[in-house]
C-alpha cells in the first residue's frame, strides 16, 4: 500500500427519509484507498453498497442525505465542496460506471457525442476535432473499433455498451473509478473480459478502482482489499487473501460457504439461516445476531464496535471486542 491514501472515508453515514421513518442505509463506514488499488465492496441487495458508492461522489438520490462523516480526496474535504466544485470533480477525479449500460447512454446521441460533450464540458479549451481524436483513442483502449464512433447506443451489444461506459469513465483520466455492478447484466465470458479490461486500465492509467458487486467470487478474484457489508454496516474489512483464508465475521464465513466454486469437485454449500433485516426495523444489538450461528446474550444487547483484530483486518463482531 502507498503511504498517502488517495481517498479516505471516515464514519460516513447516509440516511433516507422514508414515510415510515428514517433509514440508515450506510452507517459509520471508514476506509481508505491507495493509488492503483482495487477495493471490492460486497454485500446482498439492500446492504447499502450502492448508496455507499454514490455517496462518494455525492450523488445519493433524494430523499437520501449524508448526515455524518468525512470524505477526503487527496487531502481535500469533498463534503465541503460547492456544487460547481463537485461537478468539476465528477468524471474528472472520480468517475462512475453504472450497472445498467442500456439506460446510462443517451439513445438519441451518437457514441462520439457522449465523449465530446464530456471532454469539452470539463476542458472547454479543447476543440471538437481534438475531442474526436481523443475519443478514437479511448475507444481503441477499451477494445472497440474507432469506426463505431458514429453509431447509436442501440447498435451496440450489452458488452460493448459497458465498454463505452468504461471509456467514458476514464476519458478525463480520473484518479478513482467506481464501478457499481459493472458486469451484472452481462454473460460470463463478456463479464470476464470487462473485468480484465478494468484491471488493465487500472494498471495502465494508475487509477484506483472501487468494485461494487453482490458476487463474492468476483471481488475475491479481482480486488486487493474487500469491504463486506451487511444491513448498512461494514462487518469486515481486510485484504482479499485474509477474507478468503481467515474470514472472521460469521456473515463472511457464511457467505464463503454459500457460494459454489467450480474448481472444487465435491462441495457442500450451506445457506445462512434467516434473511436480511428490514432497515426500518433493525434488531437490537448486533444486526446479524438473528442469523448468527454463535450469537450470545451480549450480541442481542449491544451493538459490537468495529475491532482491529489483526494488522489491516477489521471486524464488527462481539467475539473480537477488546477485553474479551
Amino acid at each position: 500500500m502507498t503511504s498517502q491514501p488517495l481517498l479516505t472515508v471516515n464514519d460516513l453515514t447516509v440516511e433516507y427519509w422514508a414515510r415510515r421513518g428514517k433509514v440508515r442505509a450506510v452507517e459509520g463506514i471508514s476506509f481508505s484507498i491507495g493509488k492503483s488499488e482495487t477495493l471490492g465492496i460486497v454485500g446482498e441487495s439492500g446492504c447499502g453498497k450502492s448508496t455507499l458508492g454514490l455517496s462518494l461522489i455525492r450523488l445519493v438520490p433524494y430523499p437520501g442525505r449524508i448526515v455524518k462523516g468525512k470524505i477526503s480526496l487527496k487531502g481535500r474535504d469533498v463534503l465541503k465542496f460547492s456544487k460547481s466544485q463537485m461537478q468539476n470533480l465528477r468524471g474528472k477525479e472520480i468517475s462512475y460506471v453504472f450497472q445498467d449500460p442500456m439506460t446510462s447512454l443517451n439513445p438519441v446521441k451518437k457514441i462520439g457525442a457522449h465523449f465530446v460533450e464530456l471532454i469539452r464540458a470539463h476542458e472547454p479549451k479543447v476543440s471538437e476535432k481534438e475531442a474526436v481524436v481523443r475519443t478514437r483513442k479511448l475507444l481503441k483502449d477499451v477494445g472497440i473499433q474507432s469506426e463505431r464512433i458514429g453509431d447509436y447506443p442501440h447498435q451496440l451489444s450489452g458488452g460493448m455498451r459497458q465498454r463505452i461506459m468504461i471509456a467514458l469513465a476514464i476519458a478525463l483520466n480520473p484518479s478513482l473509478v467506481i464501478a457499481d455492478e459493472p458486469t451484472t447484466a452481462l454473460d460470463v465470458i463478456v463479464q470476464a473480459k470487462i473485468l480484465d479490461l478494468l484491471n488493465a486500465l487500472r494498471d495502465a492509467y494508475g487509477m484506483a478502482l472501487v468494485l461494487i458487486t453482490h458476487d463474492l467470487s468476483i471481488v475475491l478474484e479481482r480486488s486487493d482489499r474487500i469491504i463486506v457489508m451487511y444491513a448498512g454496516h461494514m462487518v469486515e474489512y481486510a485484504r482479499s487473501e485474509d477474507i478468503f483464508k481467515n474470514p472472521q465475521h460469521p456473515y463472511t464465513q457464511g457467505l464463503l460457504k454459500a457460494i459454489p466454486n467450480v474448481e472444487l469437485d465435491e462441495q457442500t454449500l450451506n445457506a445462512i439461516a434467516g434473511s436480511p433485516p428490514d432497515l426500518l426495523n433493525l434488531p437490537k444489538g448486533c444486526r446479524f445476531w438473528p442469523r448468527c450461528y454463535c450469537a450470545k446474550e451480549r450480541c442481542r444487547e449491544k451493538e459490537p464496535p468495529l475491532t482491529n483484530t489483526e494488522p489491516d483486518h477489521y471486524v464488527r463482531c462481539g467475539k473480537y471486542e477488546e477485553g474479551e
Partner: peptide
C-alpha cells in the same frame, strides 16, 4: 470465464 472465489 467463471469467477472463482479464490484470490490466489
Amino acid at each position: 470465464a467463471i469467477p472463482v472465489p479464490n484470490p490466489e
